[in-house]
Amino acid sequence: MSVLNGVSYGLLLFMLSAGLTLIFSMMGVLNFAHASFYMLGAYFAYQVSEWTNYWVAFVVAPILVAVMGGLFERYVLRKTHKSGHVAELLVTFGLSFVILELVQLIWGRSAVDYKVPAALDGSLFKLFNSSFPEYRAFMMLVAVGMLVSLFLMLKKTRIGLVIQAALTHPETTEALGHNVPRVFAMVFAGGCALAGLAGVIGGNAFITEPGMAQAVGAIIFVVVVVGGMGSLAGALIASVLIGLMQTFAVGLDWSFLGGLSALGIDVTPDTFGYPVWKLKLSQIGPILPYLLLVVMLVVRPKGIMGTRDD
């Protein structure tokens, strides 16, 4: 059960970080507003499913997010390209502010009632005495489907080839008659669409509120760094690793205190550093990804699948 929980959460993280990694590896832009597009996906899906139904929203919301991402790339991001990567990062940082405020302006500041569709609202099977929800299985299915189609698109189709060519040799690709800026805009829009899709399926599994972007923002950066900057495969491994790690950590009540007393060392509240020794693994579970980040940087700075070591 814990494995399933961990993997399904990890796959959602992957959907989020896949778009980020894609944009980063193609354009060298770290999209700080990526989590904001995830939030937009959830809110669009909520709005569209209020008007029609969930399945329409499932298709329409990512497209809307992609359009917004494409427009942003075309009219704002491209203009900062000449000022360098710092300016590009800053402009997406500013965008995350503006999106957050606009979302609050349109949908209010508290959570909206974005529900799991009735058809998927049930339990798939029971293991021991806890049941595995259908919707989680659906999430995993969508994530895997996305992974496979992304892979096929990049490796097997003409568009994928052009994208890869534009990435490594932009001038040559341009000379061959391809519109490289348009390819970039498409990649950016595509990456945003992935975030939007993650929002569609994550928004109702968890919660759709203005704080949701900030809640995942930092963690997907960790995934990208730990996986190795710009590596999709690395992002997949890192996401699932983090998902599993967080899930299993919750189940374990280990602490240094227990370990030390097993070794025969007596630790009392007067011992130096007692607050550290008494912390349980389950307590620090959610910050483990950040610890992983630090450890990874010390041990292997280029990340799991990273090739560059800058």
Binding site: H85, F221, V225, I287, P289, Y290, V294, P301, D310
Partner: peptide
């Protein structure tokens, strides 16, 4: 240990770590 964009992301992660701690 890193420069450029990875540096930014790492500072973000370390910031979260310290805040949670």
């Amino acid at each position: 240990r890193k420069a450029g964009t990875p540096f930014s992301m790492i500072t973000l992660g370390v910031g979260e770590l310290v805040f949670a701690a």
